[in-house]
Every structure is written in structure tokens, then in C-alpha cells.
């Protein structure tokens, strides 16, 4: 039948803990969550671990397997070498409750801070009409199973507790994008809100969130970049906005977009942008009430560049950061493995 394999599992609670070693039977076709269940049934009945559907649909069994944020139920044992030790640790970005269970209330707090869908006034239930081509963009983001792996891997908050207050994280950027692209949503300030209240400016598009998404949502390309790049257009051009609401996408001129070209690697779909913006040259960014500016493309030679930081290593030394994030101040990062978030190594889009 099965073979014995070596596992290392972090056990402990908020007071601290340690990796413990286990030898567990593994059978053909099993996933990491099966092994945790076998541990519970045979060796450690009180090993804490969240799970529900065991089918990759509920997003409960998020954990770090050999250092990678994964769903336990979606990680096949056959993806490891026969003699490989599998190390399982809790999500690092959130406080540990016990063993593999972390306190993910950060995410639920951010969910509450994201403005909800605003139904169009005067449209009765049953009278909503939308085209499939228009709902599909938002539907991509509604695939999200809220496993919070993107939140966990995002280096803006991973090991940076101080950024949590100002930063909602990729999960809530796609929520904002979803509502922004919703054909009937009545609010028009989703992008501005994401910039000014959700801390989207802190994101420097390293695509780590996209990489860990078990639903393969193109978080960076299809949500964050369009939300960053089009914010200027929409802010200044109500006609563009109106046109987008009135016409279906396939009825708009050209590719229907009115934004600067994206020069970042692997950008697809709406984020690609038109080769030139037609209606105006570069404009200065808006100054907020407190006299500061949101993070913008102002430091770049072109409007709508790929990242406020260009190709720089993130994070920059604090003295060189060209913007003032909302308090608290961004700390200097120790140059550890988590700073390694360059845009290199991501495969080219079409």
C-alpha cells in the first residue's frame, strides 16, 4: 500500500512554537490535506487545521508548503520527490491562533471597508439587462474563493505589520475592479477609492499574488494595472466613463480603451491600452487635501507607466521613496528573500 514519508509541521500558538517531525503513510493519488487528516486520526488528534470542501472551492485550507503559499487540498503528493521532506507551516502574514490556523480577520475587516455594490436607481429586480461580454470581466474576479493566499504572499504586508492599516491587499483590489467593471454598478469612483483609501499605490506590480492564485485570476494584469492606469482618464473625462456605461465593449471604437500604453511585461487584455492616448498629453497628478500626492506615475517619463518604481528592487530605501504613503511610515526592509520580487521571470503574455 502506502509508503512512509517524512513531514515537518509547525505546531504552536500565539506564544510561539516549533516545527515537529512526523513519519506518515502516503498513498497514491493523495494530497497534502489527506496527510494532515491522517496525522489527526492517528498521531495528533488536536492538530489544528482549517478545511471544508477538500475540492479547491472554499479556500479554507491555505497553508505554506515548503515555503510556498498553497491550498492543502490542491497540492498533490506526487508533485514532490519520493524522498522529499514536506514542511508545512501556517500563513506567515497573519497571526497564528494554533498550529496551521491563523487569524485572518484582517481580510474581513478590509472587506467591510470596501464599498459594496451600488444598485442602479430605478431599475427593478428582474429588469437588469447585461451582455455576457460585459459581465465576463467582473466574473473573472468573482471566481475568487477567498483563500487569502494573495494577501499572504503580498510583500507589502508580509512581514510588514505596519502597512496593514493602509493597505487592503490584492483580494480587495480585485473586488474594487470587479465593481468598477460591473456594467450596472452606480458608483463611479471605484478607482479613486482604491488609490486613496485602499492603498493600491503601495502595490508595485510584482505579480506574486497572481502567481499564487489557485483560481488563476490574473490579479495584476486584469485588475490592478487597469485600476492604476485608467484612474487618470476616468477622473478627467466623464464622456469616456459615460460611453463605457452606455455602450457595450464591442461597440466602442477601436479596442474601446482610452489609456496610455502599458510597457510592463505580460500585460494582457484591457490593460494593454492603446498605443497613444488621443485626447491629451501628460497631466500632473491630483494633490490631496493634505497637500500630499497619491502614488502616481509622476516620477516616470511617461503617463501610465508600469510601476511607480520602474524596474527598481522593492522596497526602496525609505529616503528614496518619492511619495508619502498614509501613516504609518514605510520601514526599511532587511534585504532578505522576501525583497526578491522583481518582475523578471514571469512569462510573456500574448
Amino acid at each position: 500500500m502506502g509508503t512512509k514519508r517524512h513531514f515537518r509541521v509547525w505546531r504552536g500558538d500565539s506564544a510561539g512554537g516549533d516545527i515537529e517531525d512526523f513519519d506518515v503513510e502516503v498513498n497514491e493519488g493523495e494530497v497534502v490535506l489527506d496527510i494532515i487528516h491522517r496525522l489527526q486520526a492517528t498521531q495528533t488528534p488536536d492538530l489544528a487545521c482549517r478545511w471544508n470542501c477538500k475540492a479547491g472551492k472554499c479556500g479554507s485550507c491555505s497553508m505554506e508548503i515548503n515555503g510556498k503559499p498553497r491550498l492543502g487540498c490542491m497540492t498533490r503528493m506526487s508533485t514532490f520527490e519520493e524522498d522529499e521532506t514536506v514542511t508545512i507551516t501556517p500563513l506567515r502574514t497573519f497571526p497564528v491562533i494554533r498550529d496551521l490556523v491563523t487569524d485572518v480577520s484582517f481580510n474581513y475587516d478590509k472587506a467591510r471597508e470596501t464599498p459594496a455594490f451600488a444598485p442602479p436607481p430605478g431599475v427593478a429586480p428582474g429588469d437588469y439587462r447585461m451582455q455576457q461580454v460585459d459581465v465576463e470581466r467582473s466574473q473573472e474576479f468573482r471566481k475568487c474563493i477567498e483563500c487569502f493566499l494573495c494577501q499572504n504572499t503580498c510583500h507589502v504586508v508580509r512581514d510588514h505589520e505596519e502597512n496593514k492599516a493602509a493597505f487592503s491587499g490584492p483580494r480587495y483590489f480585485i473586488r474594487a475592479a470587479e465593481l468598477d467593471m460591473h456594467p450596472l454598478d452606480d458608483r463611479t469612483d471605484r478607482k479613486e477609492y482604491a488609490q486613496s483609501h485602499q492603498g493600491m499605490g503601495l502595490c508595485n506590480i510584482t505579480k506574486c499574488c497572481t502567481e499564487v492564485c489557485p483560481e488563476h485570476i490574473k490579479i495584476t494584469d486584469n485588475a490592478i494595472i487597469p485600476m492604476k492606469e485608467r484612474v487618470v482618464d476616468r477622473r478627467y473625462d466623464p464622456l469616456v466613463w459615460l460611453g463605457r456605461k452606455i455602450f457595450r465593449r464591442d461597440q466602442l471604437d477601436g479596442d474601446g480603451e482610452n489609456m496610455a500604453p502599458s510597457s510592463s511585461v505580460g500585460v494582457t487584455d484591457v490593460a494593454k491600452g492603446a498605443p497613444f492616448t488621443t485626447n491629451r498629453g501628460p497631466e500632473g497628478p491630483e494633490v490631496r487635501e493634505d497637500g500630499r500626492m497619491d502614488v502616481t506615475e509622476v516620477t516616470l517619463p511617461t503617463q501610465g507607466g508600469p510601476s511607480p518604481f520602474g524596474d527598481q528592487q522593492f522596497p526602496l530605501p525609505s529616503g528614496r521613496v518619492a511619495y508619502q504613503p498614509p501613516a504609518p511610515q514605510y520601514g526599511v526592509h532587511d534585504d532578505g528573500q522576501d525583497g526578491d520580487h522583481g518582475t523578471d521571470g514571469h512569462h510573456q503574455g500574448h
Binding site: P119, P125, G126, Y128, R129, Q132, V135, R142, H182
Partner: peptide
């Protein structure tokens, strides 16, 4: 049941659509 489904759209649900824009 139909009323309950239509109500979900006012909460922000995005069902797949028919050609004429109704819920498929």
C-alpha cells in the same frame, strides 16, 4: 424562486446572460 433570483442581482450577483441580456 424567480423573485429570489432577481433580488440577487440587486445585491450584485453576475449570472451568465442570454443574448438579450437576461439571466441565462
Amino acid at each position: 424562486a424567480p423573485e429570489r433570483i432577481w433580488e440577487l442581482e440587486t445585491y450584485g450577483a453576475l449570472f451568465d446572460r442570454t443574448k438579450d441580456g437576461k439571466i441565462s
